[in-house]
Nucleic acid binder design. Structure first.
Lengths: 221, 221
DNA sequence: CGGCGATTGTCAGCTTGCTGTCAGGTCGGT
DNA sequence: ACCGACCTGACAGCAAGCTGACAATCGCCG
């Protein structure tokens, strides 16, 4: 799950990155409006957290440009306290949710999760696809009702596949999601994780489409 | 469902009354500490919303007096922004939840509803989860019936885990809850507290999900 | 103000088990 | 049959978390 944090106060930005990172997001951060617009337009994020007061290009303009360019990822807007009119503008500009500063990190994380789930068409804290069920609160996994112990990395991989259930996810995308583009791992690392997961989950859960990527079984013809 | 709103700012008070009234509460309001204490002690409310900055008698004193008099209705405390020590004092004085200003009315209503539901669920001010039981009024802890002496810090950690029993709480969130965002401690401080608590409580109470966080055991298979 | 005990943050060393890498092996397409 | 894509088991490095010791700090009582 990739998240973009746009916040010019480095201290707040660091907190945001830490909290979202802990919540399972792979976080990228920038403090400049122009750069934010560029990143959001060229990269593929599952969530953006956007502060309105920015140097370079105003946050609302960034948001409008993203939407104008057809970017549909959920955007959570941070506004200064009491700036209620910002909220209206923000929503009209295409924000999905809005949080006044100061806020509690737990709430931000909860809202971020809710947004991502909503974007994926999941109603509750439970993601179910095929024989697989993910409890996003307890970070627990069951296959056909039987609980399975998975590690943090394995869980992130599973949740990403579950989130993009409709399609076959190419290995490069998974690698980029699990690790950064910066520190690239060997392609085999991913295969090792998949293998370990398959041993735990049994067959018939993670499928391979040779030459294309991986998917969760039970969602295709 | 009767609710008492204690808030000296008439504008905010009006908003609160409107929102809670809309949500189905029969609302009474007062802006003075002494009167609040009197009302809360003599009348029977299902919920109280309590601002801390009050003329007459301080909000925390009101709360403490209510609790000392044996009033057990859920109390939602409103604190000024970033006044983190208020939260601690509030919880230690017997608050059931707290909300930093500024907040959104919808959230206040949601939390109010949750509090009332919770209060209806288990009658007292007892939180029980697994082998653990917390007396939220007296700050006392028992494990499988046996009383355990815990420090204030340990109690805050336990109560937070118990409050969020349904999910695995990431260490960053616990750090933020125990200490402010202002003065950050080493990550190891949390681990030390956990270790000390485990020694007191015995095994099988606080569980670890490596890479995710901590939780209270007994809520899963 | 001063002393004392309880509390709690920090540090260093340790254990646990996750995870990337490697060296093969297997499978599918052509 | 061959080649490349993918799988698998073994293994070592390493990071997350645990623990005991110690020191700083706080609260309390005189």
């Amino acid at each position: 799950m990739r998240a973009l944090v746009v916040e010019d106060d480095p201290r707040i930005a660091a907190d945001l990155c830490a909290a979202l990172g802990q919540a399972g997001f792979r976080v990228e951060s920038c403090g400049d409006g122009e750069e934010a617009w560029f990143l959001g337009d060229t990269e593929d994020y599952d969530l953006a957290v956007l502060d309105l007061g920015l140097p370079g290009l105003d946050g609302l303009s960034v948001l409008r440009r993203w939407r104008a360019a057809g970017r549909v990822m959920p955007v959570l807007v941070l506004t200064a306290r009491g700036a209620w009119q910002d909220r209206v503008e923000g929503i009209e500009s295409g924000a999905d949710d809005y949080l006044p500063k100061p806020f509690r990190m737990e709430e931000l994380v909860a809202r971020a999760r809710a947004l991502v789930r909503r974007a994926a068409g999941h109603a509750g804290a439970m993601m179910e696809v095929g024989a697989l069920a993910l409890d996003t609160n307890r970070m627990r996994v069951t296959v056909r009702g039987a609980p399975v112990q998975v590690t943090a990395l394995e869980y992130r991989l599973l949740s990403y596949l579950a989130l993009h259930r409709a399609r076959v996810v190419p290995p490069t995308e998974l690698l980029e999601h699990l690790y950064g583009d910066e520190d690239a791992r060997e392609a085999n690392a991913l295969e090792a994780v998949i293998a370990r997961l398959r041993r735990k989950l049994g067959t018939g859960v993670i499928g391979t489409r040779r030459g294309f990527g991986y998917f969760i079984e039970g969602t295709e013809a």
